[in-house]
Computed example of a mutant assay.
Amino acid sequence: MKKIILFVILLIPILKIDALESYVVMDTKSSRILSSKNMDEKMLIASTTKIMTSLVALENASTTDVLCAGKEVLSVYGSMIYLDIGECMTLYDLLVGLNLRSGNDAAMVIATETIGYDNFIKEMNILANKLGMTSTNFKNPHGLDNETENISTAHDLALLMRYATTNKTFMEITKLKKYMLTSNIEAHIWYNKNELLRSYKFLTGGKIGYTEKAGYMFVSSATKAGENLIVVTMKEKDRFNTHKKLYEEYFKEYDSYKILNKKTFNVKSEYYKSYHLYINEDVEVMLKKDERDKIKIDIDIIKKKKVKDKEVIGKAIVYVDNKYVTEANIFIISKHQKEHSLKSKLFFWKK
């Protein structure tokens, strides 16, 4: 009897980057764009709006502030945490509901009851401008687009998420998988809609979004072996698998290198002979192995007749393969002041 052997071929879906409508992979530390497509194309952003809503709230109010829902909750629909009028929670609780359940009612309460709705929207756009989000405009705190529309790009959203990763409270909230609380009216149990938190251990947070007009949105961050990436996809339905595959690919292809060390940085200036020039932070950039010899650093010093200690007097600009990547401010301090500071530290250590 002949044996018939059947070979079963498993069709594993392969990520086709060219098929993505708009995306960005960004090195968090340097903001270098490692890969992108249509990253400056303006689109509706749905509930990824709530990253900005969270940051403006955290920068303008205390997480222990108690906010009570008013009639503003009646003006929204879609994803909700189902607040009753008169229901009260801390700002922290509302931010959890905003991020885990994408509560549009939570967004309205936060914006209305912290600094006032109109001021809140104004602050969202002020912060966007501060972060260099030049193609972004916020009209509401939730991302619904039936009456007003929030517009941004994949690049701008990556810049926003980069800033968000510096806020410990936001990052603590956005990676929660489950949260329970009891308000003055009822108990709530919320589970995070970000499914990637349960399937990719290196994910540190993010925000999903969807409306019929905007499509499927996802902004996320991940850390692996001390390296940090941000991924943004717009109008991508298979968003969780796509983000995971992009992280796996770019963590594998790139490594983080310290380009400038704040402890050893030294620039001698004939113009500022009696001063010491320094940077106050290391500069790290993710590179492919064959890019290590393509680094170029330009030192741009501004000549001033009068300077103050710790004043910015220039920039150290980093290029990879003649393309701008990042920069660091160069500060100035008198050599006498530096020596005095060093002696003070040595005296302290001696004691």
Rank of each mutant, 00 (worst) to 15 (best):
286 M>V: 11
141 P>I: 03
55 L>A: 03
42 K>E: 09
241 N>M: 10
218 F>A: 01
9 I>H: 14
149 E>S: 12
251 F>V: 03
79 S>W: 05
228 N>W: 07
310 K>C: 10
57 A>K: 03
347 F>P: 10
1 M>A: 14
153 T>P: 08
106 A>F: 02
327 E>W: 09
121 I>D: 01
310 K>P: 08
145 D>V: 06
24 V>I: 09
222 A>C: 07
22 S>D: 08
23 Y>I: 11
339 E>S: 12
70 G>A: 04
129 N>S: 13
100 L>H: 00
337 Q>V: 15
283 V>P: 02
275 Y>A: 01
195 E>N: 13
205 G>Y: 01
100 L>E: 00
114 T>Q: 07
209 G>Q: 03
167 N>L: 07
114 T>S: 06
163 Y>I: 00
55 L>V: 02
8 V>M: 05
153 T>R: 02
85 I>S: 10
12 I>W: 14
146 N>T: 12
192 N>E: 05
28 T>C: 11
189 I>K: 14
152 S>N: 05
55 L>M: 08
233 T>Q: 04
325 V>D: 01
191 Y>E: 15
39 M>R: 08
300 D>S: 15
281 E>F: 09
53 T>R: 11
215 G>C: 01
177 K>S: 09
96 V>F: 08
188 H>N: 09
8 V>F: 06
128 A>Y: 01
166 T>L: 08
201 K>R: 14
268 K>Q: 15
285 V>T: 10
326 T>C: 07
199 S>C: 13
258 K>P: 06
210 Y>V: 02
325 V>N: 01
30 S>L: 05
97 G>K: 03
44 L>R: 06
298 D>K: 12
32 R>I: 06
190 W>N: 02
229 L>V: 04
323 K>V: 14
120 F>Q: 05
221 S>G: 04
184 N>W: 10
77 Y>L: 12
171 M>E: 06
154 A>E: 00
90 T>D: 07
51 I>L: 06
289 K>F: 11
259 I>R: 05
19 A>L: 13
70 G>S: 09
179 Y>E: 04
272 Y>F: 05
185 I>Q: 08
180 M>P: 09
24 V>P: 01
149 E>M: 12
128 A>M: 04
249 E>K: 15
216 Y>P: 00
165 T>S: 05
22 S>V: 07
347 F>Q: 15
151 I>S: 01
137 N>E: 14
175 K>S: 12
190 W>C: 01
98 L>Y: 00
317 I>Q: 01
216 Y>D: 09
281 E>H: 15
317 I>T: 13
155 H>C: 10
293 D>G: 02
350 K>S: 13
70 G>Q: 04
12 I>S: 13
